[in-house]
Amino acid sequence: MNLPVRAAAGVVLLVALVACGTDQPGAASSSSGQRSIAGADQLVDCPSTPSKPPATKGLPDVSLPCLGSGPDTRLADLRGPLVVNVWAQWCTPCRAEAPYLAQLAKSGKVKMLGIDYDDPRPELAVKFATEHGLAYPHLFDQDKAIKQPLRVAGPPLTAFIDKDGAVAFVHHGVLTSQAQLDQLVKDHLGVTP
């Protein structure tokens, strides 16, 4: 085979390999952030957020995919009053505090966001969120992108974000009562649930 024929065959092979791609069924698509996770349509959609400059002492400038439907969310774009809860379906303390978070969300006094953290089973995370009535958007951080900026030793962790986007307070560990969560919201966000 002469050189031009070999070069043409190589180009055809390369194009065929690239066209096949490497995405696996159900895997995340980096351009759309959409995955097909069983039951994800039962979760609250993640909203689009307008791009903003990162806030001083704000959430990290990382984008995370939506666990349900909706676009990826850039954490640095978020403003409060907002309660961000870091959880995982395998986390026993997360199950204990879930009713308090669900009740706060029902009050409608603050925005809520969940981040499913370091969770190898997103389908079980979706089931966890729906079974516990966590009726607010949830993101998915399988790669632990928020670990260092929020000093996540492990879930649960609850961050309180003020109206300017600054992290007003971070509660490490389990929330032990509705009264405790409501008091943290009042103390750090100035909102009475």
Results as ranks from 00 to 15, higher is better:
Leu3Gly: 03
Arg6Gly: 07
Ala7Asp: 05
Ala8Arg: 09
Ala9Val: 04
Gly10Lys: 02
Val12Pro: 04
Leu13Glu: 02
Leu14Ser: 13
Leu14Ala: 15
Val15Gly: 11
Ala16Glu: 10
Leu17Met: 12
Gly21Asp: 02
Thr22Asp: 14
Thr22Cys: 15
Asp23Arg: 15
Asp23Asn: 11
Ala27Leu: 12
Ser29Lys: 13
Ser32Lys: 07
Gln34Gly: 01
Ser36Thr: 10
Ser36Arg: 12
Ala40Gly: 09
Gln42Thr: 14
Leu43Phe: 05
Leu43Tyr: 08
Leu43Ala: 06
Leu43Asp: 00
Cys46Asp: 00
Cys46Met: 14
Pro47Gly: 12
Ser51His: 13
Lys52Leu: 15
Pro54Thr: 12
Pro54Lys: 06
Thr56Gly: 13
Lys57Cys: 10
Gly58Asp: 10
Leu59Asn: 09
Pro60Phe: 06
Asp61Cys: 09
Ser63Trp: 15
Gly68Ile: 00
Ser69Phe: 15
Gly70Leu: 02
Gly70Lys: 05
Pro71Ala: 14
Pro71Ser: 15
Pro71Gln: 15
Asp72Pro: 15
Asp72Ala: 14
Arg74Trp: 12
Arg74His: 11
Arg74Met: 06
Arg74Cys: 04
Leu75Glu: 01
Leu75His: 08
Ala76Gln: 08
Asp77Gln: 03
Leu78Gln: 09
Arg79Ala: 00
Gly80Trp: 08
Gly80Pro: 12
Pro81Asn: 07
Pro81Lys: 02
Leu82Gln: 03
Val84Gly: 00
Val86Arg: 09
Trp87Tyr: 03
Trp90Gln: 11
Thr92Glu: 13
Cys94Arg: 03
Arg95Trp: 09
Glu97Cys: 04
Ala98Trp: 01
Ala98His: 06
Pro99Glu: 14
Leu101Val: 01
Ala102Met: 02
Ala102Gly: 06
Gln103Cys: 04
Gln103Met: 10
Lys106Gly: 05
Ser107Asn: 02
Gly108Asn: 11
Lys109Asn: 06
Val110Gln: 09
Lys111Ala: 14
Leu113Phe: 00
Leu113Arg: 05
Gly114Lys: 02
Ile115Thr: 02
Asp116Ala: 10
Asp116Gly: 08
Asp116Leu: 10
Asp118Pro: 01
Pro122Tyr: 01
Glu123Cys: 10
Leu124Pro: 01
Val126Glu: 05
Lys127Leu: 10
Phe128Tyr: 13
Glu131Pro: 02
Glu131Val: 03
Glu131Trp: 00
Gly133His: 04
Leu134Ile: 09
Tyr136Val: 07
Pro137Thr: 04
His138Arg: 01
His138Val: 04
Phe140Trp: 06
Asp141Gly: 08
Gln142Phe: 08
Ala145Asp: 08
Ile146Met: 11
Ile146Arg: 15
Ile146Trp: 03
Leu150Asn: 03
Arg151Tyr: 05
Ala153Leu: 12
Gly154Pro: 05
Leu157Ala: 02
Leu157Pro: 01
Thr158Arg: 12
Thr158Gly: 09
Ile161Ala: 00
Asp162Ile: 05
Lys163Glu: 08
Lys163Trp: 13
Asp164Arg: 01
Asp164Asn: 11
Gly165Ser: 10
Ala166Ile: 13
Ala166Gln: 09
Ala168Pro: 14
Val170Asp: 00
Val170Cys: 00
Leu175Trp: 05
Thr176Cys: 07
Gln178Arg: 07
Ala179Cys: 07
Ala179Phe: 11
Ala179Met: 06
Ala179Asn: 08
Gln180Asn: 10
Leu181Asp: 04
Leu181Val: 07
Leu181Trp: 03
Leu181Gly: 01
Asp182Ile: 02
Asp182Asn: 14
Gln183Asp: 15
Gln183Lys: 07
Lys186Arg: 13
Leu189Pro: 08
Gly190His: 08
Gly190Pro: 10
